[in-house]
Amino acid sequence: MDERARDFLASFGGDLEAAVAALRQAATAPPATGEGDGHDRVSPRHTDRLPARSRPARPRSGRTLIEVTDLAKTYRVGGQQIRALAGVSLTIDEGEFVALTGASGSGKSTLLQLMGGLDKPSAGRIVIDGADLGRMRDGQLSTFRNTTIGFVFQFFYLQPFLQLVTNTEVPGMFAHAKRGPRRQRALELVDRVGLADRGRHLPREMSGGQMQRAAIARALLNQPKLLLADEPTGNLDSVTGASIMDLFEQIRDESGTTVVMVTHDEDMAARADRVIRLRDGLVVPEGVGA
């Protein structure tokens, strides 16, 4: 196996079957027809059909950003113990784009929320960027979320009566960022997500895709190392969803931001560097069908 093939296989986490399937899909896909140079960029319309490894992955630093060890989470619902996570261990490198997939109730969203410090695990440990979330107090966790993590939600959750630029500024407000630089950065981000002409619009005046782009811009305001996205395309049509995925890739490529995305959409998951599948609260070992 030559070096390119080894790298390619590694990008699928060693999952030969997935790599082969991706190659097959690539082989049957129509030629790229994107604008611009027409070669190294693809139209968002077709992106979702491309295999994850059909485009060059940004070189990763190899530094571990997220380290999850024996993570368990049990909920108590109506007197019954519901085991959402049953001992998950994984690592995610800095600059990696990871998709968490699995059936409904598999624990993927729970894992994302625990990574985001929004909930406390019943057992296990999460270390992000060297910080053990379990040892942080509430205020520290808030600051950590504010500065290190950006959240993107399925339903966007923008402030309905704030203009887009101001919406983007909200995390900066909680970070006590100065207004001038904060506004400048918000304008840049709005431009970056392709909404420069919508800066003064209210969320209700925008489409779902535009709102999600705005939500992504908001998530990026404080230059987080980690972007956590919970079903970011779940409320969008496939074309719009693909454009959002493009945006994630672009962010990861340009800023080196680690992206962890929960999705039940296999096509979207396939756009990630790596897909981590969960089933019954456990990571499905690589090579085992989900």
């Binding site: 985001g116 929004l118 509430d138 205020g139 808030s142 600051t143 950590f144 979320r145 504010n146 500065t147 993590i149 950006g150 959240f151 939600f153 959750y157 909200v170 995390p171 909680f174 970070a175 908001r218 998530a219 404080n222």
Partner: peptide, 11 residues
């Protein structure tokens, strides 16, 4: 959502 994007309780 505020909590998720880093707001403290006091905020």
């Amino acid at each position: 959502v505020f909590r998720a994007i880093g707001a403290k309780r006091s905020d």
